[in-house]
Design a protein around this nucleic acid. Structure first.
Length: 754
DNA sequence: GCGGATCAC
DNA sequence: TATGGTGATCCGC
């Protein structure tokens, strides 16, 4: 009974923390918190949001339990060793040197670096003026979000020391409420001079003064020896004030001492709660418990905690780091599957525009879904050929979405949010020399070496090994060159038809779970078959495969006899990663390993050792090499084949090719197998065609078998391993998610052709 | 690389 | 009344 009450009380407390009501919030002191909490609890009880918050809170509680369990197992000896390590290492490196090198502290820890975060509202409205002012003090100032900026005015201060008074003089424009904005701007009569000194404090006063004069918005600021402290300082005298921590150890520690850890940037409600469970609320408590912390948290975490407790932070403003990701997401009321697809496309379109603005190409596409219960899920695919256009992104995203739909089928996906994120951007070098796009390669009449940047080269020059190790694609490329002219004369498709086809395919896809009106598209000739029976459609494919395509296209309305049901179960290839052959990311720095053991000798870590372990940390974070396994999430089997061969060739000949943006736009694709121009620009459809071309023989064989054996059982896997190997995985459009793949190992030809 | 989670703004 | 969007990072796998 009592326990249950306690449980309720603590879960309630946790939730209130989640909902953002805690003692830290400014302005809450005078209010009856208990009353407000009660109202909020009552109001949100039972809502999906509330339920989800409870769930999340429960997860945090479980994490805490784990940590406490760990804590209970920590021995005194371990703690002692950790204490020595976490103290001596840091003090040796950060402070112990002080005696030997008096200048160290001032130089390394507390230089005359002044960082000023400014907090104002409606920053975007006045960003230009503001920005202009800030640039005068630090041309490299760093904007953080829309309403904050960090400045390093150290250099400026030096310069300003020698300034004459008139250079430090500004004028107060007294605001006359009788005048409107324009009159006020023009008014020059009501001005008083003010002179600001040369100290950091006075300079910051001046900045705030000028900002207020120009925008009539107040700003708060902090002056401190590093970014973390400066940020916390600026919170001290909000909304219109400033606070300074002098660049001295004592001053810093004094400020830090009783500071609640929640005030520290980077410590959020979850971290706060976890540390609170360890009886750590203030920064000095954090320092006191540093030994325990080092045993319970990860290397990066405890080092971070330790630096916080010592008031250490970044002392330089990093130049605008390169963007790592770009995303867009939308919240909405529940929508249908078809609407989800079109929303997905819309998001891709928005994203493509943003990517274009920054000239970026990304290799990873992530779909984010939040269901009506507020549960968030992300699904990602990384492709070899970077994406940037709406079509390219959508091609990946829609497969991810489809996988998720199929995972819950026949239930619909009940969503309240969808988002698309792209990441893994190509750097300039990669963009410049990006692998030539498959689309360009497949265009009729285009030579692989076509480029404006390099002189034209012959096939031999570019692929010196081609003759001795002639690849399939090289051969095909060569024959295509020869037959191209003739073929294009007869086979050139009508552009309008192309567009029609494309839009038709799009409109069909969202409705695929709805069996009412099915449109089959032949993967060989791309002819659409509306409302035709599966049997009739199968017959059509049979004919296409046996080469009687042209007649069929001219008369696809005639009824066929001798129906043959073709039901191929395609097993996706399980692209098993050999985990043992991968570099061990779990490798711990030597320092930690030392710490975890109970070695009783040599408990004093050497500074040198520590530095070494730091180095090894850095090397651990480097990326792994190219995964040579043709992944099933590669959007097309054709692409993967091209990729492998192309890499081989390009690396052996050291020829690098530029990228061709927007390659999918208005291009005619030529199948490298049958050498015929295809009626589609949709890569997915085109790839299917190539698949079918490549597997004609096998499919034929299967068809024959099914004829002789009777109809293949839909639910059974084909035992013909040839079909499932290597390329079949990508035949199935939803083969994107690693997790989904094993569950979705079967696919009928019916769904495949839809 | 992927997916979940946390955090800041 | 109903509970946002964007970007970064970390951890465990």
């Amino acid at each position: 009974m009592e326990n249950a009450d306690k449980g309720n009380a603590s879960s309630r407390e946790g939730l209130l923390l989640r909902l953002g009501l805690n003692d830290n919030k400014a302005g809450m002191q005078g209010l009856d918190k208990e009353k407000i909490n009660k109202i909020i609890m009552e109001a949100s009880k039972g809502s999906k949001f509330y339920e989800n918050e409870l769930k999340k809170d429960q997860q945090v509680n479980e994490r805490i339990e784990k940590i406490l369990k760990l804590k209970s197992k920590v021995t005194d000896q371990q703690l002692m060793k950790a204490q020595i390590k976490s103290t001596s290492n840091y003090h040796a490196r950060r402070f112990g040197v002080r005696a030997a090198m008096p200048g160290f502290i001032a130089k390394k820890l507390c230089p005359h670096l002044t960082i000023v975060p400014l907090n104002f509202k409606k920053y975007e409205e006045v960003s230009k003026e503001v920005r202009e002012i800030l640039a005068e003090y630090d041309s490299h100032f760093m904007p953080m979000g829309l309403d904050e900026a960090y400045l390093n005015i150290t250099e400026y201060l030096e310069e300003r020391k020698n300034w004459p008074e008139d250079k430090r003089q500004h004028f107060i424009k007294t605001y006359n409420s009788a005048l409107n904005e324009q009159q006020h701007q023009q008014s020059t009569t009501q001005i008083k001079p003010v002179v600001f000194g040369a100290s950091a404090e006075e300079v910051v006063e001046e900045i705030r003064f000028r900002i207020e004069q120009k925008t009539r918005l107040t700003a708060s600021a902090g002056i401190a020896p590093n970014t973390m402290l400066a940020k916390m300082c600026s919170d001290k005298n909000k909304p219109n004030g400033q606070y300074r921590i002098p660049p001295e150890r004592e001053a810093v520690m004094n400020f830090i001492k009783d500071l609640a850890i929640r005030k520290v940037p980077g410590i959020g409600k979850v971290t706060e709660k976890m540390l609170k469970a360890l009886n750590i609320v203030t920064c000095s408590e954090l320092y006191q418990q540093r030994a325990l912390i080092s045993l319970l948290f990860s290397e990066t975490s405890w080092r971070n905690f330790l630096e916080i407790s010592l008031g250490l932070g970044s002392t330089h403003l990093e130049r605008d780091g390169e963007r790592k990701s770009m995303s867009t997401e939308r919240t909405f009321n529940e929508i249908s599957a078809a609407e989800q697809y079109s929303l997905c496309q819309e998001l891709c379109s928005d994203l493509a525009q943003d990517l274009k603005k920054e000239g970026l190409k990304a290799r990873t596409v992530t779909l984010k879904l939040k269901n009506v219960n507020f549960e968030v899920k992300t699904r990602a695919t990384t492709v070899m050929s970077a994406v940037s256009t709406e079509e390219e992104i959508f091609a990946v995203a829609k497969d991810l979405l489809r996988s998720e739909m199929e995972a819950v089928a026949p239930q619909p996906l009940r969503l309240r949010l969808m988002g698309i994120r792209v990441s893994g951007f190509l750097n300039e070098e990669e963009k410049k020399y990006q692998q030539k796009s498959i689309v360009n390669f497949l265009e009729p009449g285009k030579h692989i070496s076509t480029t404006g940047l390099f002189p034209r080269k012959s096939e031999e020059e570019i692929f010196p090994n081609a003759s001795e190790k002639e690849s399939f694609f090289n051969k095909k490329r060569a024959t295509r060159q020869q037959t191209n002219q003739a073929a294009s004369l007869n086979m050139s498709p009508n552009k309008q038809n192309l567009q029609d086809m494309k839009s038709l395919v799009k409109s069909v896809e969202p409705a695929e779970n709805n069996g009412a009106h099915q449109i089959f598209i032949c993967p060989v000739c791309f002819e659409e078959h509306q409302d035709s029976t599966l049997e009739a459609f199968n017959r059509h494919i049979d004919r296409c495969l046996s080469g009687t395509l042209e007649e069929d296209i001219t008369d696809n309305s005639k009824s066929w006899e001798n129906t043959t049901e073709l039901s191929v179960n395609m097993e996706k290839e399980e692209c098993q990663k050999d985990k043992t052959s991968k570099p061990q990311i779990e490798v711990q720095p030597a320092e930690i390993v030392d710490n975890a053991t109970n070695r009783s000798t040599d408990i004093f870590p050497k500074l040198q050792d520590d530095e070494h372990s730091r180095e090894s940390e850095c090397s651990l974070s480097s990326n792994f090499g190219f995964d040579t396994c043709a992944k099933q999430d590669f959007p097309s089997n054709v692409l993967s084949v091209e990729k492998e061969e192309y890499f081989e060739e390009s690396s052996s000949s050291e020829i690098k090719l530029p990228c061709f943006p927007d390659a999918t736009e208005n291009k005619v694709l030529v199948c490298p197998v049958c050498n015929l121009e295809q009626k589609t620009t949709d890569l997915a459809l085109f790839n299917r065609h190539v698949d079918v071309c490549l597997n004609k023989g096998i499919i034929k064989q299967l068809t024959e078998e099914s004829k002789s054996l009777g109809i293949l059982d839909r639910g059974q896997n084909s035992t013909n391993s040839t079909v499932g190997k290597k390329r079949s995985g990508t035949l199935v459009p939803q083969s994107t998610s690693k997790k989904a793949k094993s569950n979705n190992s079967k696919c009928t030809i019916e769904s495949f052709f839809k």
